[in-house]
């Protein structure tokens, strides 16, 4: 296939990279990535993956844009208040890169729909704001063998890890069960410094691009956390656990159930 001049110019800074090149850019164009959550983390992920030329991007979020989102969810603008977040995100992604396919899912992720939604994606980015859904994404991706990036932020702190199912430690190898309801405050209760959403989301976007192009070493078997007040980054080595309930030798979690206090219960 002859690549157009516009294509080569748009992606020239990728193509110039020895590790990416023309071949890597073609892999990005053929790739399908699902972003779960069009909030603080999903916003930079959506913008950077769209800019990078990831050919098919799915984005899932049930919510509408609210005024309090705009302090950190940079894909949404003041004019978008009241609009579905997925539509707002899609509009900006296509404005950056009109040739993409952006699929929107204005829904919650739950046991009943996650398998169907994630099927066919090459990589999933977890940008959700609650523990039950983080565990659900982990379990479903492990069962389906789909690599994903876990990410979470609160106040001045962020943490992320990349999971290659069957190869590297999964989220449940590290954290067995969701914390009790209300044990960990949400962003809406505790607050979050807006820019750290960008710090963490861009790490997740980078991991997605690395996975697709095969460049470098993924953040697997490692939990990366940072504290923005001290601006310290810490890497903790983690290991796959043989007795992990989902990716271990004898898994006890073999089908998905919605945890208590799942976001699906929040449906009015």
């Amino acid at each position: 296939m002859e690549l157009s001049e516009a294509y080569l110019e748009r992606y020239s800074r990728h193509i110039l990279l020895q590790d990416v090149g023309v071949e890597g850019q073609e892999k990005l164009a053929a790739a399908k990535v699902l972003i779960v959550g069009a909030g603080g983390l999903g916003a930079p992920v959506a913008l950077y993956l769209a800019a990078a030329g990831v050919g098919t991007i799915g984005i899932l979020d049930h919510d509408l844009v609210e005024l309090s989102n705009l302090q950190r969810q940079v894909v949404h603008f003041t004019k978008d208040i009241g609009a579905p977040k997925v539509d707002s995100a899609r509009e900006k992604m296509l404005a950056i890169n009109p040739e993409l396919i952006v699929k929107t899912y204005q829904d919650y992720l739950c046991a009943a729909n996650i398998h169907e939604i994630i099927a066919g994606y090459d990589f999933v980015v977890d940008g959700v704001d609650n523990f039950p859904t983080k565990f659900l994404i982990n379990d479903a991706c492990v069962m389906a063998g789909i690599p994903f990036s876990h990410g979470g932020i609160l106040r001045f702190d962020g943490q992320t890890m990349t999971v290659l199912p069957g190869q590297s430690a999964c989220y449940r190898c590290v954290f067995r069960t969701p914390p009790p309801p209300d044990a960990v405050p949400t962003c809406s209760q505790a607050g979050v410094l807006g820019a750290i959403a960008g710090m963490l989301g861009t790490i997740q976007a980078t991991e997605a691009l690395k996975y697709i192009t095969g460049v470098g070493d993924l953040l697997t078997d490692t939990l990366l956390s940072f504290n923005a007040k001290a601006m310290t980054f810490r890497r903790v080595a983690i290991k796959r656990q043989p007795d992990c309930p989902v990716c271990g030798a004898q898994p006890t979690i073999t089908k998905l159930v919605d945890a208590e206090q799942s976001v699906c219960d929040l449906k009015r």
Partner: peptide
């Protein structure tokens, strides 16, 4: 530069 290098890489590929 740098499009001359981009085209060189395209041809080499």
């Amino acid at each position: 530069c740098p499009m001359n290098l981009v085209y060189t890489k395209v041809e080499l590929a």
